[in-house]
Design a protein around this nucleic acid. Structure first.
Length: 417
RNA sequence: GUGGGUAUCGUCAAGUGGUUAAGACACAGGGUUGUGGCUCCUGUAUACGUGGGUUCGACUCCCACUACCCACCCCA
């Protein structure tokens, strides 16, 4: 039995890779414009980082992590998300002592043990950005603006930005109690998972997909109505800042993030064009994450964006990606002397910066031309005994289908034009 | 973890109880001796997911399993 790639993983070949390289380049560019610098952290971390950072009760930690013991007996986990590792690294290397705020971006694979479906893999790729060291809503708006601009610049439309405030440790408990009070008389009508949520995290019931729960929840107390003064002011500030940036959004009181660390700002960019996994980018503020994983209070805000989902959306939008680069000059050769002469020429052309290619399948001349055509070569030069002797090379312009002669020394100049 | 769908050459795809299991694309060679894209010809493939069963006979019917896709859940 041949070995296959593990469930929920994808191989990417050259016919697709140019798309990935394109969005990666564009993301790096926009981050540069916005002042975010790249960080790279290990692909695995101590399991404890995610238990404390993402939260022990989340689905991610409870049933989706790739966790194993290494040969030294340490519990190691493949990163399921990007924020906690960046926070860990930031604290570990004392960058809070640098000029604040600190703005970082990353582009990294993440791993979650899930049942694969459209837009959801076990090994997937994310872009992310984080701003540390300020709780000013300018940063939240800036993070959202970057996401908005990137998505737009990638040629994606019909995307909706939803924002909400999930409160803070001061106001959240009050809302939670109000919610429980409200739901109590309806407890028996709730779906099974929501009965559990009632105990563990009643806020999640607000975004249950079950129609029955939706109906019950319709007039439920919303977090936005229970925000403490501090959170309330912050949310208003965020709205003003987004307005100043000219960014359209809707306030959706029901969006709740599945990671425990979020406070105040929560947002997502959603679409219905790529199947059920509509969240292309999601994020928010996490003012107490650093307290959880370190011993220092540093506020933060950021987002994660699924590269696969961005790509799916771009394809749904019929975005034209830049064409992959084609061979510039193909060297067709006939005979053993010509082969060696061609190899020598090939190396010089490549050294001079050209995308040059030869046949390595011992094809006859006709086959070599067919091959050159398949490679979409701009020029094909033919090398045989005559050419070696005279130093005059025959070059064919494959697009114009014209042929002309040129001295070997002039070959490089010719192609430059 | 729970549902639904699919499974025939490298790819797409006919075939629904008895066929040498089509065809197309792709790949390779050729159409006068060193020239592509179009066209024509030729060539190559131990292709019916795996294991059982029903039947004189199964790619075709039944069962199980596996893989992939999609949905729930959750999220990027």
């Amino acid at each position: 039995m041949a070995i296959r790639a593990p469930k929920g993983t994808k191989d990417i070949f050259p016919d697709q890779i140019h798309k990935w390289q394109y969005i990666e380049k564009k993301f790096a560019e926009i981050c540069d414009r916005y002042g975010f610098k790249e960080v790279r952290t290990p692909i695995f971390e101590h399991t404890e980082l995610f238990q404390r950072g993402v939260g022990d009760t989340t689905d991610i930690v409870q049933k989706e992590m790739y966790t194993f013991k290494d040969f030294g007996g340490r519990s190691i986990t493949l990163r399921p998300e990007g924020t906690s590792p960046v926070c860990r690294a930031f604290l570990e290397h004392n960058y809070y002592a640098d000029v604040q705020p600190s703005k970082y971006y990353y582009s990294a694979p993440c791993f979650r043990y899930e049942k694969p479906q459209a837009g959801r893999l076990r090994a997937f790729n994310q872009f992310g950005i984080e701003t540390f060291g300020t709780d000013d809503m300018i940063s939240d708006a800036e993070i959202i603006a970057l996401g908005y601009d990137f998505i737009t610049e990638m040629g994606i439309d019909e995307i909706l930005l939803k924002i909400n405030s999930v409160g803070c440790p001061e106001c959240r408990p009050k809302h939670r109690e109000a919610l429980r009070e409200f739901l109590k008389p309806h407890y028996d009508e709730l779906c099974d998972t929501c009965k559990q949520r009632y105990e563990t995290n009643p806020m999640r019931i607000l975004d249950c997909k079950s129609e029955i729960c939706q109906g019950i929840v319709e007039d439920a107390p919303m977090m936005v109505d229970y925000l403490c003064d501090n959170c309330k002011v912050a949310f208003e500030e965020l709205e003003k800042n987004l307005g100043a940036f000219g960014i359209e959004y809707v306030v959706d009181p029901r969006i709740v993030r599945g990671l425990d660390y979020y406070t105040k700002t929560a947002f997502e960019f959603v679409t219905t064009k790529i199947g059920a996994q509509g969240t292309v980018c999601g994020g928010g503020r996490y003012d107490y994450l650093m307290d959880e994983i370190g011993d220092r209070h540093v506020p933060g805000v950021g987002f994660g964006m699924g590269k696969e989902r961005i790509l799916m959306l771009m394809e749904a939008n019929d975005v034209k990606f830049p064409e992959p680069l084609k061979t510039e000059i193909f060297i067709a050769h006939v005979g053993d002397n010509a082969k060696l002469y061609s190899l020598n020429l090939l190396r010089r052309l490549r050294a001079a910066g050209y995308r040059a290619e030869v046949d390595a399948l011992a094809r006859n001349i006709k086959g070599q031309f067919k091959y050159a055509n398949r490679l979409n070569a701009k020029y094909t030069v033919v090398i045989g005994d005559d050419e070696i002797e005279s130093g005059i090379l025959t070059v064919k312009d494959m697009e114009k289908s014209e042929q002309f002669e040129v001295k070997r020394e002039d070959l490089l100049d010719l192609i430059k034009r």
